[in-house]
Amino acid sequence: MKKNNLLWIVILVFVAVLSIILSIMLGSVKISPADVFKSPIVLYIRLPRVIMAFITGAALSIVGLTFQSLLKNPLVDPYLIGVSSGASFGAALSFSIAESYGYFWASVAPYMAFVFGLFSAILAIAFSRKGKRISTTELVLAGVSMNMIFSSATVFLLYFFRRSSQGYSVWIFGSLSGVVWKDTVLPFLIFVLYLIFTYTQSVRLDAFSLGEDFAKIVGVETEFLKLTLFLSGVFLTATLVSKVGSIGFVGLVVPHIVRMLFGPSHKFSLLYAILVGGSFLVLVDLFSRIVAPPLEIPIGIVTSFVGVPVFLYIMKSGDER
């Protein structure tokens, strides 16, 4: 690893640790540094929440990075192509059914999220496909349509089952409140597995992002790469969504910043995306907690405020595509 990269990684690890510490100490109850490890608020409420924020930010960022390479399109993320809102509908459906038919249905939420997330992404891609090519504009439009349909379906579902719209914002805009240690286990495991697998494929993914014919010529089994990275990316997103709802734009903004600063090579950009994405969501979550206490702004609203301008900027600067 080159000196420069190592230095950056050290700086970013430092930023990540700092943002986690800050996020643990600040909140509606202020905790002094001396009491950090004694306070039950830290151990059972803030720490799992901050860890979950980091995992979610890191995971959405590497899934976004991977999808942008698979679709050869820097305007893509799991939220924009409809995976998140489909998954969010699947999870909401599970929990709604569980209210009437028992706990089993709540435990299958990650799988229901996977099925609907996959369904939504496949629809978006199918609608935007022209022969072998996927049109950027149409993919974004199809993704927006999927988001509309599944978000509306989610709200409908909650009205129908609960006769109120309470709680729908968790699924539409995401929320990390109420996360406990148990919730972090599955997302963490899937995240680590996904990272290891993607890392082994990093050089092949580099070649793939430059075109399928090019990748084939240098010896990449393109169909295997596409299928495995796509399905596992949808599964990781679905696992997260079933715990924290749908959080948009992280997977778009972070890979863009990382690529701009450090270049596109996945060997490094995957690591950078984890550190930047994790710290970013930890800080966004902190902001959403402390900006208007005791109210909490749903985290997805904050990420949209940051993400939409960046999205428009990328769209505008990439006119030649």
Binding site: A207, G211, F214, G263
Partner: peptide, 22 residues
């Protein structure tokens, strides 16, 4: 081939290294 128009901007060294993937 004559049609190679990359979307992502790799370095020359990285591109030559891709010749070793197989």
């Amino acid at each position: 081939s004559q049609d190679f128009f990359p979307i992502y901007d790799y370095t020359v060294r990285e591109l030559v290294e891709m010749g070793r993937i197989a």
